[in-house]
Design a protein around this nucleic acid. Structure first.
Lengths: 116, 116
DNA sequence: TCGATTATTCGACAGGGGTCGTACGATGGA
DNA sequence: TCCATCGTACGACCCCTGTCGAATAATCGA
């Protein structure tokens, strides 16, 4: 009996109506997670979990991705053993207009002109 | 010797260049503090600390105001024994364009259409 | 079939932060 | 001068969350 050659592992995502502003802000108030979001926004393409440039262990990274996903910020799907990530940009824009984009902009701003 | 009839108690405020995105997000990720900000945004005028509609003790409230002030979100000044609060709307807009306004909008949105 | 790679799960740990009560300080009015 | 009011300071407490390592699961390629 052939198993499906495309991964059957599915990932649960909340509908945007289910996510609260509180969740989104908690998710985005964490530096590592904001780094992830920034890299996703900059990349312009989906990125696998393992290729992010962050200095935490794999298990910690898994935790952060879970928080981001449950907050509706990212979408995840398996490709083989790797898990791809993308921003739910448009949906977030519809749910909380201007919020995610302002945040990404602010992140970029600060990267250029650090507070120091 | 006449003491100044206008309170000499001054309050320290950071310049906007000194506040980090991290500080702002941490400040605004807390529900009580976001309630304070929402009420300030809605009021359209300066409000004294004691007149906010939040269910925490006075000492806790003091703590929240400190966090908001140090994050550059609010400005405070004494009038007699009462302490007035105002949003640093324009300055925040300049420092992190769209961020505070998106947040206030989102807060209002959710108040109308709760996640439930 | 076996190993390598990728990600998850679980338990444990430490630190931070929100909370309160009480005591204190500053101001204004009686 | 005395009291009431408004806010602060301090210490204590507890929960939440970010962190890790080790063990496990799933997939791909050789």
């Amino acid at each position: 009996m052939a198993r499906p050659r495309t991964s059957a592992r599915t990932v649960e995502h909340p509908s945007m109506a289910e996510v609260s502003l509180q969740q989104v802000l908690e998710a985005l108030a964490e530096p590592v997670r904001r780094t992830v979001v920034s890299q996703l926004a900059t990349a312009g393409e989906d990125i696998s979990c393992g290729t992010f440039d962050v200095e935490v262990s794999r298990s910690t990274l898994t935790h952060h991705f879970n928080v981001l996903r449950e907050a509706g910020v990212i979408r995840q799907y398996y490709v083989g053993t790797t898990k791809m990530n993308s921003l739910r940009t448009d949906e977030m824009e519809e749910r909380f207009p201007g919020l995610l984009s302002a945040l990404v902009t602010a992140s970029a701003l600060e990267a250029d002109a650090p507070t120091h």
